[in-house]
Simulated assay, not measured.
Amino acid sequence: MAIAAGPASAATSSVDLPEGMTASYLVVDQETGRTFGDGEHQQYRSASLVKLFIALDYLESHGPDHEIPADDLALLEPMLRSSNDDAASTLWVRDGWDEIVKRMVTKLGLTDTAPPAARGKWGYTAISAADIAKTYQYILHEANPKYRDFIMGNLAQSAKCGSDGFDQSFGLPSAVPGPKAVKQGWSGYGAAPAPGEECSETDADVLRVLRSPEVKAATAVASSGEGPTGAQDIDLTSRAMHTSGTVGADHGKIVVVLTLEPATLSWQDSAGRITELTRAVYRRGAL
């Protein structure tokens, strides 16, 4: 199913933004084809939303008959559920670095997505709300059902705590009631939360794999992108916070909200602002 467009199917009135926030968003009603969005083709750095591409590329490259080894599950599951960066770096390096993004652009027909200028910084992949919505549509309607069930099943188990200690319950998890499958992203807030704001969950088997030599070698050369990099035509300075996923037991609505915030804004303030924006966007998109 393609994203519906045009005056007859798309609501275009924008939602008011908090001062200093840049945002783009898109809601797709998969039953009616109706969309509600603003700035949906504007490019942002992906932060952890690129993990959708990494997971889908892994599955597509191995084929539907591939039984995922336990050690690979210990990378894929925390990457999707708790946004584990070390797992993403390992699969990024193993499966071809920026070639992952290039393959997904071609396969899914993405128009605004591009690899990072520095190939090791996967979190600086350029994306748009429209391309992330199209990615969900591909997973739900065109990908092999095994890939759909694996990715969406893990996103439905999105953890409250990110692997880096940040609380990733902002946006969709807090703003919208009912069943959800969610992938979050953030960048520019540092390597760890401020003291007293830590959110932590651990899994012994995941920790074992993430201490492996392969993971250590990969994380030495690849990362989410925090820190200096070469020139790129997207904002790498502002703080980025994104929420994306589906709402409803049948994944009836796709919601993508991408935001940039001033570097002075705290995690908690950013989380509150994107949650309120997501609530407003979802309500408008549901009309």
Results as ranks from 00 to 15, higher is better:
Gly109Arg: 04
Ala70Gln: 09
Asp95Glu: 13
Gln137Val: 06
Met104Asp: 00
Arg81Ser: 14
Asp98His: 05
Gln137Glu: 15
Gly63Ser: 12
Leu56Asn: 07
Gly63Glu: 11
Thr90Ile: 10
Ser82Glu: 14
Asp131Ser: 08
Arg119Val: 12
Lys134Tyr: 03
Arg119Tyr: 15
Lys107Tyr: 00
Met79Leu: 02
Tyr138Arg: 03
Leu91Asn: 15
Gly109Glu: 07
Gln137Ser: 06
Leu59Gln: 11
Arg94Tyr: 04
Tyr58Arg: 00
Gly96His: 03
Tyr58Asn: 02
Leu91Val: 13
Lys134Phe: 05
Val93Asp: 12
Val93Ser: 06
Ile127Lys: 02
Asp86Phe: 14
Ala87Lys: 02
Ala117Cys: 07
Gly109Met: 04
Ala88Arg: 09
Gly123Tyr: 12
Pro116Cys: 10
Ser82Tyr: 07
Met79Asp: 04
Asp131Phe: 04
Gly123Gln: 10
Asn84Asp: 10
Lys121Cys: 04
Thr111Leu: 14
Ala129Pro: 14
Met104Gln: 12
Leu75Asn: 03
Ala74Gln: 14
Leu75Tyr: 05
Leu108Gln: 06
Thr135Pro: 10
Tyr136Pro: 13
Ala74Ile: 02
Arg81His: 01
Ile68Asp: 09
Leu73Thr: 05
Asp57Gln: 06
Ala55Arg: 03
Trp122Val: 11
Asp85Thr: 08
Leu80Ser: 11
Pro115Thr: 06
Gly63Asn: 11
Gln137His: 08
Met79His: 05
Ile132Ala: 00
Ala130Cys: 03
Ser89Val: 10
Asp65Val: 02
His66Val: 00
Asp57Phe: 08
Thr90Glu: 15
Met79Trp: 01
